[in-house]
Amino acid sequence: MIGNDIVDLEVAKTQSNWQRKGFLEKQFTAEEQKIILNSENPFLQVWLFWTMKEAAYKCFVQEFQKRFFAPKKFRCKIFSESEGIVEVENSFYYIKYVISENYIHSFAVKNKISKMVSESFFIEKKAFQTKTTNQQMLSYFAEDVVVQKNEFQVPFLYQQEIKLPVAVSTSHHGNYGGFAFLNT
Protein backbone atom coordinates (compact mmCIF):
# COMPACT_ATOMS: atom_id res chain seq x y z
CA MET A 1 0.00 0.00 0.00
CA ILE A 2 1.14 3.48 -0.84
CA GLY A 3 -0.39 6.93 -0.89
CA ASN A 4 0.76 10.38 -1.85
CA ASP A 5 -0.62 13.89 -1.89
CA ILE A 6 0.71 17.15 -3.28
CA VAL A 7 -0.39 20.74 -2.64
CA ASP A 8 0.57 23.63 -4.91
CA LEU A 9 1.37 26.33 -2.34
CA GLU A 10 0.51 29.23 -4.64
CA VAL A 11 -2.94 27.79 -5.33
CA ALA A 12 -3.43 27.09 -1.61
CA LYS A 13 -2.56 30.74 -0.84
CA THR A 14 -5.03 32.14 -3.34
CA GLN A 15 -7.91 29.64 -3.26
CA SER A 16 -8.11 28.36 0.29
CA ASN A 17 -8.67 30.33 3.45
CA TRP A 18 -7.46 27.99 6.19
CA GLN A 19 -7.92 30.83 8.69
CA ARG A 20 -11.68 31.00 8.22
CA LYS A 21 -13.82 30.25 11.26
CA GLY A 22 -14.14 26.53 11.93
CA PHE A 23 -11.65 25.27 9.33
CA LEU A 24 -8.94 24.12 11.74
CA GLU A 25 -11.47 22.65 14.16
CA LYS A 26 -13.08 20.54 11.40
CA GLN A 27 -9.85 19.23 9.87
CA PHE A 28 -7.32 18.88 12.69
CA THR A 29 -7.10 17.38 16.17
CA ALA A 30 -6.63 19.68 19.17
CA GLU A 31 -2.93 18.71 19.30
CA GLU A 32 -2.47 19.44 15.58
CA GLN A 33 -4.22 22.80 15.95
CA LYS A 34 -1.86 23.70 18.78
CA ILE A 35 1.17 22.78 16.64
CA ILE A 36 -0.21 24.80 13.70
CA LEU A 37 -0.93 27.90 15.77
CA ASN A 38 2.48 27.78 17.49
CA SER A 39 4.39 27.10 14.28
CA GLU A 40 6.84 29.60 12.76
CA ASN A 41 4.86 29.19 9.53
CA PRO A 42 1.26 28.11 10.28
CA PHE A 43 0.36 28.13 6.56
CA LEU A 44 3.02 25.50 5.73
CA GLN A 45 2.10 23.46 8.80
CA VAL A 46 -1.57 23.32 7.76
CA TRP A 47 -0.71 22.02 4.30
CA LEU A 48 1.92 19.61 5.57
CA PHE A 49 -0.61 18.01 7.93
CA TRP A 50 -3.20 18.06 5.13
CA THR A 51 -0.92 16.20 2.67
CA MET A 52 0.08 13.72 5.37
CA LYS A 53 -3.58 12.95 6.14
CA GLU A 54 -4.47 12.62 2.44
CA ALA A 55 -1.51 10.32 1.71
CA ALA A 56 -2.40 8.13 4.70
CA TYR A 57 -6.07 8.14 3.66
CA LYS A 58 -5.11 6.74 0.25
CA CYS A 59 -3.20 3.91 1.97
CA PHE A 60 -6.13 3.28 4.29
CA VAL A 61 -8.57 3.04 1.37
CA GLN A 62 -6.24 0.59 -0.42
CA GLU A 63 -5.97 -1.53 2.71
CA PHE A 64 -9.59 -1.56 3.88
CA GLN A 65 -11.53 -0.75 0.67
CA LYS A 66 -13.73 1.86 2.34
CA ARG A 67 -13.99 5.60 1.82
CA PHE A 68 -15.11 8.27 4.25
CA PHE A 69 -14.41 11.90 5.06
CA ALA A 70 -13.14 12.34 8.61
CA PRO A 71 -9.80 14.20 8.61
CA LYS A 72 -9.71 14.47 12.40
CA LYS A 73 -9.55 10.66 12.66
CA PHE A 74 -6.12 10.86 11.00
CA ARG A 75 -3.66 11.96 13.69
CA CYS A 76 -0.30 13.32 12.52
CA LYS A 77 3.01 13.33 14.31
CA ILE A 78 6.22 14.83 12.91
CA PHE A 79 9.54 13.10 13.66
CA SER A 80 12.00 15.16 11.64
CA GLU A 81 12.24 17.66 8.79
CA SER A 82 11.15 14.95 6.35
CA GLU A 83 9.37 12.16 8.28
CA GLY A 84 6.31 11.56 10.38
CA ILE A 85 3.54 9.08 11.07
CA VAL A 86 -0.24 9.14 10.76
CA GLU A 87 -2.50 6.97 12.90
CA VAL A 88 -6.11 6.11 12.09
CA GLU A 89 -8.28 3.37 13.61
CA ASN A 90 -5.23 1.59 15.11
CA SER A 91 -3.42 1.57 11.77
CA PHE A 92 -0.15 3.43 11.31
CA TYR A 93 1.22 4.90 8.09
CA TYR A 94 4.80 6.05 7.83
CA ILE A 95 5.24 9.39 6.11
CA LYS A 96 8.06 10.95 4.14
CA TYR A 97 7.55 14.46 2.88
CA VAL A 98 9.19 17.18 0.83
CA ILE A 99 8.56 20.88 1.35
CA SER A 100 9.77 22.93 -1.59
CA GLU A 101 9.34 26.59 -2.43
CA ASN A 102 6.36 25.65 -4.65
CA TYR A 103 4.69 22.58 -3.17
CA ILE A 104 4.42 20.09 -0.34
CA HIS A 105 4.47 16.43 -1.34
CA SER A 106 3.83 13.66 1.22
CA PHE A 107 4.12 9.90 0.79
CA ALA A 108 2.61 7.22 3.04
CA VAL A 109 3.47 3.54 3.34
CA LYS A 110 2.27 0.84 5.70
CA ASN A 111 5.69 -0.74 6.09
CA LYS A 112 8.44 1.70 7.05
CA ILE A 113 11.13 -0.24 5.17
CA SER A 114 9.24 -0.23 1.87
CA LYS A 115 11.26 0.80 -1.17
CA MET A 116 9.48 3.53 -3.04
CA VAL A 117 9.91 5.31 -6.34
CA SER A 118 8.45 8.82 -6.35
CA GLU A 119 8.51 11.96 -8.38
CA SER A 120 7.14 15.51 -8.18
CA PHE A 121 6.89 17.70 -11.27
CA PHE A 122 5.53 20.88 -12.82
CA ILE A 123 2.42 20.52 -14.99
CA GLU A 124 2.34 23.02 -17.85
CA LYS A 125 -1.40 22.78 -18.58
CA LYS A 126 -3.78 22.33 -15.64
CA ALA A 127 -6.43 20.84 -17.96
CA PHE A 128 -4.19 17.79 -18.39
CA GLN A 129 -3.29 17.12 -14.73
CA THR A 130 -4.46 13.51 -14.58
CA LYS A 131 -3.13 12.62 -18.02
CA THR A 132 0.27 14.21 -17.34
CA THR A 133 0.59 12.59 -13.91
CA ASN A 134 -0.27 9.13 -15.29
CA GLN A 135 2.10 9.56 -18.24
CA GLN A 136 4.97 10.54 -15.93
CA MET A 137 4.38 7.47 -13.74
CA LEU A 138 3.87 5.10 -16.67
CA SER A 139 7.24 6.12 -18.13
CA TYR A 140 8.75 3.76 -15.54
CA PHE A 141 6.86 0.78 -16.95
CA ALA A 142 6.44 -1.11 -20.23
CA GLU A 143 4.71 0.69 -23.09
CA ASP A 144 1.46 -1.28 -22.84
CA VAL A 145 0.88 -0.70 -19.09
CA VAL A 146 -2.20 1.41 -18.27
CA VAL A 147 -3.76 2.91 -15.14
CA GLN A 148 -7.28 1.93 -14.13
CA LYS A 149 -9.16 2.86 -10.95
CA ASN A 150 -11.51 0.65 -8.99
CA GLU A 151 -14.85 1.70 -7.45
CA PHE A 152 -12.98 3.30 -4.53
CA GLN A 153 -10.88 5.37 -6.98
CA VAL A 154 -7.73 3.42 -6.08
CA PRO A 155 -5.40 3.28 -9.10
CA PHE A 156 -3.96 -0.02 -10.31
CA LEU A 157 -1.66 -0.90 -13.17
CA TYR A 158 -2.74 -3.32 -15.87
CA GLN A 159 -0.82 -4.92 -18.69
CA GLN A 160 -2.84 -6.72 -21.35
CA GLU A 161 -5.85 -6.70 -19.00
CA ILE A 162 -3.85 -8.40 -16.21
CA LYS A 163 -3.58 -6.50 -12.94
CA LEU A 164 0.07 -5.98 -11.97
CA PRO A 165 1.19 -6.53 -8.35
CA VAL A 166 2.46 -2.96 -7.94
CA ALA A 167 0.94 -0.50 -5.45
CA VAL A 168 0.69 2.97 -7.02
CA SER A 169 -0.62 6.39 -6.05
CA THR A 170 -1.05 9.57 -8.07
CA SER A 171 -1.86 13.13 -7.06
CA HIS A 172 -2.06 16.60 -8.59
CA HIS A 173 -2.98 20.08 -7.46
CA GLY A 174 -2.59 23.34 -9.33
CA ASN A 175 0.57 23.26 -11.41
CA TYR A 176 2.14 20.26 -9.68
CA GLY A 177 1.72 16.54 -9.91
CA GLY A 178 3.29 13.59 -8.25
CA PHE A 179 3.21 9.86 -7.98
CA ALA A 180 4.68 7.06 -5.96
CA PHE A 181 4.87 3.31 -6.34
CA LEU A 182 6.37 0.52 -4.34
CA ASN A 183 9.50 -0.91 -5.89
CA THR A 184 9.41 -4.62 -5.14
Rank of each mutant, 00 (worst) to 15 (best):
I104V: 14
T14G: 10
L138I: 03
E81L: 14
K13H: 07
K72S: 13
F68I: 10
V46R: 06
T130D: 11
R20D: 09
N41M: 06
C59H: 07
Q19D: 07
V7T: 14
E83D: 10
Q19H: 10
I35E: 08
T170G: 04
Q129C: 11
P42S: 07
S80Q: 04
E81Y: 12
A12S: 12
G84E: 04
K131S: 06
N4E: 09
S120P: 01
E151S: 05
Y94L: 11
I162T: 03
A167H: 10
F43I: 11
T133H: 01
W47E: 00
D8Y: 02
Y140F: 13
I85N: 12
L157Y: 00
S106Q: 06
Q159F: 02
V88I: 15
T184F: 13
I2K: 06
G84A: 11
E54W: 11
K26D: 13
S171G: 01
Y94H: 15
Q159P: 02
F122Q: 02
Q15R: 13
Q153L: 09
F74K: 11
R20W: 09
V46Q: 05
V117T: 12
L157K: 01
F60N: 14
G177S: 01
E161V: 02
R20L: 12
K131T: 08
S106P: 03
F79W: 10
I104G: 05
V166Y: 03
V117S: 07
N38I: 08
I123Q: 03
F128P: 00
N175D: 08
P155Y: 01
A108M: 08
Q65L: 13
E101S: 13
S106E: 06
E87Q: 14
L48W: 03
F92R: 15
H173E: 04
I162Q: 05
F152W: 05
Q15Y: 12
G177H: 02
L48D: 01
T133S: 03
A127D: 06
Y93C: 12
E151P: 00
V145T: 08
F181M: 05
R75S: 14
F107S: 09
A56K: 09
Q129M: 06
Q33L: 08
I36Q: 01
E119I: 06
F181D: 05
F179I: 01
I36S: 01
T170L: 15
I99P: 01
